[in-house]
């Protein structure tokens, strides 16, 4: 019940932000807002029954720190791939590698796979259980992913949030 109320409150705030008005003059618009709020909460409750994990927001400092680290990695990888694309010869050496994911929850594995995909040069292609199949545009990028501590970082953040 508690998480339904918090979800309702944040959805109401979100609606006010998007509509840009909280005046009671426009009864029709307000009615639409209330109707969509009720519908969204009903859908969320219905999905919880299937999925078992309630909708929640966990913005912890460790997560923010991870995002900043990830942004830096994305920037570096972008420049590397841009260099490959712009060089006349385009020296690519594609690889398909398997990376072990040590996360325990689905959210953790999703975060790790999404981080791999967000970093240009590596794309997660398939996931089975705890192994992620990754396509990398060059051999160096594949080795870089295998050597980087991205997996350990995601696992550390996951352990703090749970």
């Amino acid at each position: 019940m508690g998480h339904i109320l918090s979800l309702g409150a944040s959805l109401a705030a979100f609606w006010m932000l998007l509509s840009g008005s909280i005046s009671l003059d426009h009864k029709l618009v307000l009615g639409f807002g209330v109707a969509s709020l009720v519908l969204s909460i009903w859908l969320a409750v219905r999905m919880d029954r299937i999925d078992g994990t309630p909708v929640s927001v966990n913005l912890r400092p460790s997560l923010i720190r991870y995002w900043i680290w990830l942004a830096k990695e994305i920037g570096k990888a972008n420049i590397d791939v841009a260099k490959i694309v712009l060089s006349p010869k385009m020296e690519i050496s594609p690889r398909m590698i398997r990376v072990k994911a040590t996360q325990k929850t689905d959210v953790g594995i999703t975060t790790f796979a999404n981080s791999i995909t967000l970093t240009p040069g590596t794309v997660s292609v398939d996931i089975d259980n705890d192994e992620i199949l990754v396509h990398a545009i060059t051999d160096e990028m594949a080795q870089g992913l295998l050597e980087s501590d991205m997996d350990a970082r995601v696992t550390a953040v996951e352990a703090k949030i749970r």
Binding site: G75, V81, I92, P94, T119, P120, V125
Partner: peptide
């Protein structure tokens, strides 16, 4: 196709 995904990744992120 697979290598083109990396190109599209540059557009989508940075």
């Amino acid at each position: 196709f697979y290598t083109r995904l990396h190109g599209a990744g540059i557009t989508d992120t940075l």
